[in-house]
Write a protein that binds this DNA or RNA. Structure first.
Length: 873
RNA sequence: GAGGGUAUAGCUCAGUUGGUUUAGAGCGCUUGCUUGACAGGCAAGAGGUCGGCAGUUCGAGUCUGCCUAUCCUCACCA
């Protein structure tokens, strides 16, 4: 018996092998003459920690990279992190606030010092956690979106776009995050239905006692009203033509205007117009040349122009205004109202429409080649349905707002002097340009760099190029680009994927990726997306501690059909852990065998030939599954191959009887087969397979599972595979009989095989299986029909099993009758089909002959069952 | 408002160009099994009129249309 523990212990094994692989340099890739396989990580936030989404995403990437490596490709997986402009800045601001420091009290330089300290302290934790998961990243290439190489590429990209006329600055209504105090792109605003109060407020008509009532959810913006709008065809309000109304609180006199934007059916059919605080009102304001009164400060508090509640938060002011309007008798009524509210993806603050001057990328031209490449499958999406979603967005693409009023990020390389803009790599260059326009006498202090930074995604959209320093150096990029496959969640298809594809065409005139595999979202058992705020995401590292990295990887994979969402259940990790244990015990079994060359190995040959055929059979399947990213299928196929075919059948067949040894040849071949299985499983479960690989036999230095050669499908013995399936059916039938008759599992039963000239045992080759079979299912084959035999049908072969239990004739008859009824129905339906001329004439020959075979088998079965029934009478 | 997805066993899902009146898997459930690798195990079993209605076809879980339910994306929302 081997001295291995009966339970697999992942902790020490994982640490040992990860260090070993890294020490051997297996993760590192340099361009050479092999076929490249490249992946770039979706860079997690630099100060983030590993969550379930990362686990899924990175497990998938690791599988693809490890598989490519085993296939002999030059595999390179570039890791890295994203500076995550707004998310990180928000964290730093929060940290400072806890220390009693306000961002507004700091200079830009002081703030950035804190931000870098924070990044140095917490940055890269997630990369360490990825190692625990087994991620085989090329750590020497670790990139950061704000390191020198990436930063200079971002600046260059901005300059390039500006020079090509694809960048512009414009004053528009934007999505404003009052907490982060920055503009957001449309993609960074998340909408959800929320219930608020809809206020019906009365406005006095100037010079009359009459009032007009409008409905609004935003009474705090009343002070910014510069008109009341009604529909031109609305008879209710026709009389108000040319009239003015008085805005409550501020008593401003504003006109009643007529615009067909107004929905006559909504509320009262009258709409207050606040051009500074609503995109539609802004448009209406432009049409009617209305003034714009901005009553809010950038931080969401009431501004000077509001005249009341100055400095109070908009939410607080809203409540107070509702109270005031009610007291003044101007509130007709209020009602609960549910509508869609946009919140900042990062700070969760309610987004405020606000007018401001920002930088935009003109997306129309960029989108064209990017759309075409995906529609034509030049870049292949998995699952394919994501193509539609992509197309829909690309066809309706809007310009991308890329400036952010933040400090943490890449500062916009635009310099302003008087009314001119100079876009340049450095201040010196900008100065030179300004001097060309204004002469060398200008006061250089008046040349001001843009205060804003760029959207985080403006650096990550260059990631496939910048990961290989592609703005500086063609050599590496020309080898690794296009990236073989991008693995990411579908939730960032617009924020990231679409834009990377656009940047690929813009700068490399090529597709950024050959394929894109979208993973689903990891959800909890109530189908809620896992998130920090819900607190429904398990601690990833804790899961690894409890189930082992391989167990967790198995758990994540086994329910991750290509692109579908994953309902995470810890139970699956437990199953993964148990599976590791199963493999571990198969190793213990093999290691425990003593070699005895006097043992007869003839019978084992057939078992070896069978398992090799099976292996070859699934290898072909797996190749196809890899092509289609069917990772859960791969997982389940290998799981059942190891558990059922290898352990339950193969090892049981060759297992020496108690106290006996095994011949060297069988042992060697078993070790070879198990090693191959390790290689096949390695991409999914790298640690345990490496451990078993090394335990199976002494290995040379550097002879590691991770860099072994992935087996190729070879010829297989189809007849043997079929026959073995028959044998398995028979064994199942015998076991079922034992179970239903309450027979002792170890009691040896005589079995008689009725030779019908075509059953397994009329073939000499299978006498070996027969012997093995008797060992597995505790039977002994007899040559005479036993006096008290009970018949078993396995396929169409008939066996008699003898046992010392009184046979319940009625029950037996009922069982046979029900089988018979079924078989007859089956035959009838096949006959019906075959007697249909249209079927026989139209269906392919293959299908028809298959039906004929079915009929023959069915008739045979009916015959046997009838004989059995007669025998019972 | 525009577009898209999904509906198969108690649960989560496969079912790959239509071809088994016998629709699979995992988990869960029931039953039986512990000196011999593994109870984190083994064996056996139960459980489904493939959301509904029409249609195409020799043949539909699979294709088409409509309906129902449910989810998602984008836009809008006083």
């Amino acid at each position: 018996m081997s001295n291995l523990a009966s339970r697999y212990n992942p902790a020490e094994v994982e640490e040992k092998w990860y260090a070993h692989w890294e020490y051997r340099g297996y993760f590192h890739s340099e361009p050479d003459d092999r076929e490249p396989f490249s992946i770039v990580i979706p860079p997690p936030n630099v100060t983030g920690i590993l969550h379930m989404g990362h686990m899924l995403n990175n497990t998938v990437q690791d599988i693809l990279v490890r598989k490519a490596r085993l296939d002999g490709k030059n595999a390179c997986w570039v890791p890295g992190t994203d500076h995550a402009s707004i998310a990180t800045e928000a964290k730093v601001v929060r940290m400072l606030r806890e220390k009693g420091i306000k961002k507004s009290d700091l200079t830009r330089t002081e703030f950035l010092k804190y931000a870098w300290e924070w990044t140095d302290k917490y940055g890269g934790i997630i990369l360490k956690q990825l190692r625990r998961l087994g991620a085989s990243c090329d750590w020497e290439r670790t990139a950061f979106t704000m390191d020198d190489s990436r930063s200079s590429a971002v600046i260059q990209a901005f300059i390039d776009l500006y020079d090509r006329g694809k960048l512009y600055r414009d004053y528009r209504m934007v999505n404003w995050d009052p907490e982060g105090q920055t503009v957001l792109s449309n993609e960074e605003v998340l909408y959800s239905d929320e219930t608020t109060t809809l206020c019906y407020v009365k406005y006095r008509v100037e010079g009359s006692d009459e009032t007009i009532t409008i409905a609004t959810t935003r009474p705090e913006t009343i002070m910014g009203d510069t008109a009341i709008a009604v529909h031109p065809d609305d008879p209710k309000y026709a009389r108000l033509k040319g009239q003015n109304v008085i805005v409550p609180i501020v008593n401003r006199v504003v006109p009643v205007i007529f615009d067909d934007y107004v929905d006559r059916e909504f509320g009262t059919g009258a709409l207050k117009i606040t051009p500074a605080h609503d995109p539609n009102d802004y448009e209406i304001g432009k049409r009617h040349e209305l003034p714009t009164v901005d009553v809010l400060n950038p931080d969401g508090t009431m501004g000077e122009a509001a005249t009341v509640y100055i400095g109070e938060d908009r939410e607080v002011a809203r409540k107070k205004l509702i109270r005031d309007l009610t007291e003044q008798g101007l509130m007709e009524k209020t009602e609960a109202y549910t509508h869609s509210v946009g919140r900042s993806e990062r700070t969760n603050a309610i987004v405020e429409p606000r007018l401001s001057l920002q930088w935009y990328v003109d997306m129309k031209a960029l989108a064209r080649p990017a759309l075409e490449a995906v529609i034509s499958d030049h870049i292949q999406f998995h699952p394919e349905r994501q193509k539609n979603i992509y197309r829909h967005w690309m066809e309706n693409i809007r310009d991308w707002c890329i400036s952010r009023q933040l400090w943490w990020g890449h500062r916009i390389p635009a310099y302003y002097y008087k009314d001119k803009v100079y876009v340049a790599k450095t201040r010196e260059e900008a100065l030179m340009l300004a001097e060309q326009d204004y002469g060398p006498m200008l006061d250089s202090h008046d040349l001001k760099q843009d205060e804003d930074v760029l959207d985080t995604w403006f650096s990550s959209w260059l990631w496939p190029i910048t990961c290989f320093n592609g703005f500086e150096n063609e050599k590496e990029l020309s080898y690794y680009f296009p990236i073989s496959v991008l693995v990411t969640g579908w939730d960032i298809i617009f924020l990231w994927v679409a834009r990377m594809i656009m940047s690929g065409f813009e700068w490399k005139n090529d597709r950024a990726f050959k394929e894109v595999y979208f993973t689903g979202m990891v959800r909890d058992q109530q189908r809620r997306k896992m998130s920090k705020s819900l607190g429904n995401s398990p601690d990833a590292v804790d899961l690894i501690d409890r189930f082992g990295a391989d167990g967790v990887r198995f758990g994540v994979l086994s329910s991750s059909p290509a692109g579908g969402d994953l309902l995470f259940d810890e139970k699956l990790c437990e199953q993964g852990r148990n599976f590791c244990n199963k493999m571990w015990n198969a190793l213990r079994l093999i290691k425990g065998w003593e070699v005895d060359n006097s043992a007869d190995n003839q019978d084992n040959r057939i078992a070896i030939r069978w398992i090799e055929s099976r292996l070859s059979e699934i290898l072909a399947d797996l190749e196809d599954d890899y092509m289609n990213y069917r990772l859960s299928d791969i997982t389940m196929k290998l799981y059942s191959f190891v558990r059922d075919d290898f352990c339950s059948w193969y090892l049981e067949m060759i297992k020496p009887q108690y106290g006996k040894g095994i011949d060297q040849d069988t042992l060697d071949k078993t070790i070879r087969i198990y090693s191959q299985v390790c290689t096949m499983l390695h991409p999914l479960m790298p640690f345990i397979t490496e451990e078993i690989w090394h335990n199976l036999k002494p290995r040379e230095e550097g002879e590691d599972c991770m860099i072994s050669c992935y087996p190729k499908a070879s010829d297989r013995d189809e007849l043997l595979l079929r026959s073995m399936r028959s044998v398995q059916n028979l064994v199942s039938s015998i076991r079922e009989t034992r179970n239903t008759k309450n027979l002792k599992p170890k009691e040896i039963l005589p079995i008689y095989v009725q030779d019908n000239g075509q059953n397994l045992f009329s073939d000499d080759r299978f006498h070996a299986i027969l012997k093995k079979l008797s060992f597995i299912s505790e039977i002994s084959v007899v040559t005479d029909l036993p006096p008290n035999g009970s018949s078993i049908l396995s396929d169409n072969e008939k066996y008699f099993l003898q046992y010392d239990v009184e046979i319940d004739l009625d029950a037996e008859k009922a069982r046979i009758l029900s089988d018979l009824e079924y078989a007859k129905g089956f035959v009838a339906s096949v006959q019906r089909k075959l007697s249909n001329d249209k079927f026989v004439n139209n269906a392919p020959e293959q299908v028809v002959s298959k039906e004929r075979k079915k009929l023959a088998d069915g008739l045979e079965r009916v015959k046997i069952l009838e004989e059995n029934l007669t025998a019972l009478q």
